[in-house]
């Protein structure tokens, strides 16, 4: 991770770039007199476009009513035909919804950026009790942390993944996650050199690390899978001690 960041270091903003970019941004968005006049122009365009849209909608309405009347007088169209039309309408709706989903996603279309909405997946909770209640995952605060936590955050991710992050204050973090099922909730896919399965309080726990440092522990308990990951790495004893603390 360190080398990647070191590699990207030369790509950095400069004071000249700052000046250039902010000047252009200001010109684009500031409410200068030109912008005011442009604003009026836009209002005019909006009014014109609204009129056109209203006229188009009225024309479509007339066309739709006409079509319905015309179909109504066709002897071949029966109940099944009407049902088919209804299905078609529903499908159109579904296709439109699908299109909207595509726009909201990141398929790379120009509209993506215009309508970019990032839903915050994290819902903050006041403590472990609330987190357990909201997520449905039995989870309590970790004991035996390798440092005194300067900050603790309780979050529900995507409505089902419970997460507690303990920060040491100098960059170190312990992330404790739990979710229903057997999937590893850690999100840590580092290729660690060492992987072992150890028994902690009668349960099978997979620990991963490099050398003497353990970065990740994953285990399943009662239909839920938990993980503890350490940003700086801890000793095997420290990691199994934290895991054991959750099983009391």
């Amino acid at each position: 991770m360190g080398k990647y960041r070191e590699m990207m270091e030369p790509v950095a903003v400069t004071p000249e770039m700052r000046e250039r970019v902010l000047e252009n941004v200001a010109q684009e968005v500031a409410g200068s007199p030109d912008d005011m006049s442009r604003g009026r122009g836009q209002s005019g365009r909006i009014v014109r476009m609204t009129r056109i849209a209203v006229a188009a909608a009225a024309a479509l309405l007339v066309l739709g009513v006409g079509l319905r009347i015309w179909r109504g007088v066709q002897p071949q169209v029966g109940i099944h035909g009407q049902e088919a039309n209804g299905t078609s309408g529903a499908m159109d709706g579904a296709i439109l919804e699908g299109a909207e989903s595509t726009v909201a996603g990141t398929s790379g279309g120009a509209a993506d950026s215009e309508s970019a909405v990032v839903v915050n997946p994290f819902t903050s909770c006041s403590g472990a009790e609330e987190l357990a209640s909201q997520s449905g995952v039995p989870i309590v605060d970790l004991r035996n942390l390798p440092f005194t936590a300067a900050n603790t955050e309780y979050s529900l991710i995507d409505g089902s993944l419970a997460q507690i992050v303990y920060s040491s204050g100098d960059g170190g973090q312990i992330v404790y996650r739990g979710q229903a099922g057997e999937e590893d909730p850690s999100g840590d896919y580092e290729d660690y050199k060492m992987q072992q399965t150890v028994s902690v309080a009668g349960r099978s726990v997979t620990i991963k690390g490099n050398g003497q440092l353990i970065y990740l522990a994953v285990w399943t308990d009662g239909g839920y899978t938990y993980s503890i990951s350490s940003s700086e790495g801890v000793t095997k004893e420290a990691m199994t001690g934290m895991v054991e603390g959750t099983m009391d």
């Binding site: 996603g105 990141t106 993506d112 990032v118 997946p121 991710i157 993944l161 896919y189």
Partner: peptide
């Protein structure tokens, strides 16, 4: 970022 966060940013 962790994978859950990357998923949100990239819409995947």
């Amino acid at each position: 970022y962790q994978t859950a966060e990357i998923a949100q940013i990239l819409g995947e």
